[in-house]
């Protein structure tokens, strides 16, 4: 009996080792992402892009038939031609052949066109695009975050392969990308960039948050929340603990760092379980004047923590 048990245990270890050795494949570093669902999605899309690059359209057959490998319990693959025509759809095959180039989300964001732009954005190497939609068959809108990669097939045709997560959770990396892009936009367009950043149709309003801009004296140029003047200076904003996080952000950025991250606790419901939030910010020069550009995101909560 004892021998049998030890043989089974050693067999399990050996089997796992063998299985692991056969499945190992090199992938980019996804350590900037906190949630496992996001890293699984990135792995799926990168592996799909690698297969398309080698097999071309034949890969679509594999995607459709081997769903254990090419479909997650909460995500499916899609492939679009450069003109917006759907070539493969793992979730809604009836969309294959349709041109979705002008697809807009519930706030009027041109989501499909954003996908094409973002796959060329070097600051966004995984082509993240976020939009508000209701998936076919559902009546309530949810945020979807999709990862998209541009890939060239053996026949020379360029396509975009991607996949998205419904009701996605805010990764700090998403907001890093948005803030860095907003800084670049402000530095190239000056104050003309502000209406673009502020518009809900732009890519700078995502996952119930938006990029904010404030002057170095705390005057609000784009509010992180609603466009109402509550205080003269955003530096006066106090969180659940009485801390002034936006003033802290300014102080850190004045220390000469390229970017800074500040934490804060925000009251939820009746204040029984404050939510941990993070503010990522950078200094941009708008028409020669320094301004602070930032975004607020919710921090991941350890599974064991109430």
């Amino acid at each position: 009996m004892k021998k049998f048990i030890w043989i089974v245990l050693i067999g399990l270890v050996a089997g796992g080792v063998g299985c692991g050795l056969t499945q190992r494949q090199s992938l980019p570093d996804f350590s900037a992402y906190d949630y496992r669902d996001t890293r699984r999605l990135l792995t799926l899309v990168h592996q799909a892009a690698a297969l398309i690059e080698v097999q071309g359209e034949a890969a679509f057959v594999a995607f459709a038939t081997d769903t254990d490998t090419w479909k997650l319990d909460n995500a499916y693959l899609y492939v679009y031609a450069e003109d917006g025509v759907n070539l493969f759809h793992g979730g809604y095959p009836e969309l294959v052949g349709r041109n979705l180039y002008d697809f807009k989300d519930l706030w009027g964001k041109k989501a499909m066109q954003m996908i094409y732009q973002e796959t060329k954005n070097p600051n966004n190497p995984n082509g993240w695009v976020h939009y508000l939609w209701n998936s076919p068959g559902s009546l309530h809108p949810t945020w979807k975050s999709s990862c998209n990669l541009r890939v060239t097939m053996p026949n020379g045709q360029t396509v975009v392969v991607g996949s998205g997560l419904d009701a996605s959770r805010p990764e700090r990396e998403f907001f890093r990308i948005l803030v860095d892009d907003a800084v670049r936009l402000i530095e190239s367009q000056g104050a003309d960039a502000l209406p673009v950043l502020k518009s809900p149709e732009s890519r700078f309003t995502v996952l119930n948050s938006r990029v904010f801009v404030m002057a170095m004296d705390g005057v609000c140029l784009i509010s992180p929340g609603m466009d109402m003047t509550i205080t003269d200076s955003l530096f006066e904003y106090k969180d659940f603990t009485g801390h002034t996080p936006l003033l802290e952000l300014k102080n850190r950025l004045e220390g000469g760092v390229d970017h800074a991250t500040v934490g804060m606790l925000c009251s939820e419901h009746a204040g029984e379980h404050p939510i941990k939030m993070s503010i990522y910010g950078r200094v941009a020069h708008m028409d020669g004047q320094p301004v602070i550009v930032g975004a607020i995101s919710e921090l991941p909560r350890p599974a064991w923590m109430k």
Binding site: D34, Y35, R36, D37, R169, P300, R301, P302
Partner: peptide, 21 residues
């Protein structure tokens, strides 16, 4: 599972089960 709502991976479950066994 590190963060609330994360998905379970078979590799993690296997490692946990073998270690416990």
């Amino acid at each position: 599972i590190k963060y609330a709502g994360d998905s379970i991976a078979w590799q993690d479950v296997t490692v946990g089960l073998v270690a416990l066994a």
